[in-house]
Write a protein that binds this DNA or RNA. Sequence first.
DNA 1: TATAATTAAATTGCTTACAATCCAATTAAA
DNA 2: TTTAATTGGATTGTAAGCAATTTAATTATA
Lengths: 171, 171
Amino acid sequence: MKSSSGDHPPLNNTDNSSLDHSDYSLLMLDNQLCFSLYVCSKEIIKKYKPLLDPYGLTYTGYIILMALWEKDNVTVKELGTRLYLDSGTLTPMLKKLEVQGYIKRIRSSTDERNVFIHLTEKGREFREEALQFPKELMCTLDLTPEYAGGLLQALHQMMQKLEVEESQGKD
Amino acid sequence: MKSSSGDHPPLNNTDNSSLDHSDYSLLMLDNQLCFSLYVCSKEIIKKYKPLLDPYGLTYTGYIILMALWEKDNVTVKELGTRLYLDSGTLTPMLKKLEVQGYIKRIRSSTDERNVFIHLTEKGREFREEALQFPKELMCTLDLTPEYAGGLLQALHQMMQKLEVEESQGKD
DNA sequence: TATAATTAAATTGCTTACAATCCAATTAAA
DNA sequence: TTTAATTGGATTGTAAGCAATTTAATTATA
C-alpha cells in the first residue's frame, strides 16, 4: 500500500522546471501508452516461457496453435492476418511446428500459391494441456475477470483503430 | 460505426459445441490479454518508424533517450531497470547511440564496473523534435486524453504486479 | 493467346531481445 | 591478507520480427 504517490510519477506531471514553455510531460515514459504496452507484453510473454518450454513451444508457436484451434485448415495468409504476422515470420515458424509434429502444411492443388495449415492430432491434444495456462497466468497477474475484461475491450478498440489506419494511410 | 457486434467475437464466447465439458473460451485469441498487448505494442511501435527513421533512431533508441531526458547520467544497470532491458540488449544499443552522437558512455573511475550514460547536446536537442511525436500518434490512434489515461493506469498496475512477481517468484 | 498485373509464400538481410556465460572489479568472509 | 561471493557490463548464441525482394501461380488486360 505504498503506491499512491510512490515510485511512479503522476500521470499529469508537467515538469516545467526548465526555462522554455515546452511541456515535456508527454515525453515521459510513465505517460507513454506504447511503452507500457511494450513492457507488459514482453513481461507477460516471459511468464509463458516456463509453461511452454516443456512442449518445445515459444509464445509465437502458441498463438499460432491458438488461432488454429479456433479455425483449422487456413492459409498462411489468413493466419498472418489473424495474428498480425507476415510470411517472413510465419514460414520458418510453421516449418518448425511441422517438424515438431503439431501441424501439417499442405499446398493447395487448386491454387498452388496457397499453403493450408492444419492441426495434427498432437496439435489438437495440446489444447487440453493449454487449458490450464490462462488460470495460472491470471493468478500470477492477480487479475479479476472483470478487470481483465475491461482492459481487453480497450485494447481491442485500439487494435481496430490501428487497422483502420493501416487500410487508409497509404499516403 | 459497425463495431458493436462486428468482426470480433464476444468476450464471453463459450464455444462449448464440442462433446466434452471443457471451456475453451479462455484459449481464444480475442480473450487473451497478452495477445492484444503484444499486437498493440507491435503495431504502435510500427507507427513510430516513419517518425524516428529520419533521425536514424529505432523505438528502442527512442525510449533510451526518453529515460535519459528524465534522468541523465545513469548507469547501464539503472537504465536497464527503468526500461526492462538487460545488458545484452542495451550494450550494443548504447554503443550505436554513442556512434550516432546522441549519448556518451563513460566508465566510472571510482567503481570501474559502472558505465555512466549521459546525453550529448544532440541528444538533448532531439527532445525538442520529439515533442511533436505524442500528438501525432494520439491523433493516429484517435484517443482522448482521458481514455488513454485510464488505459495507462491499468497498464501501470499490471507492471507493478509483474514486478512484484519477479522479486518473489524465485521458486 | 500473349502480356501485364496481382497474389501467396518463401527467402534474405538486418534489428531487437533474452538467456547464458564470461570477465573484471568490488565486497564479504575466512 | 587470501579466498569466496557478488556485481556490472560485455559477449555469444539463438529466436523473433519486419522490410524488401524473389519466385511461381493465378488473374486481368490488351
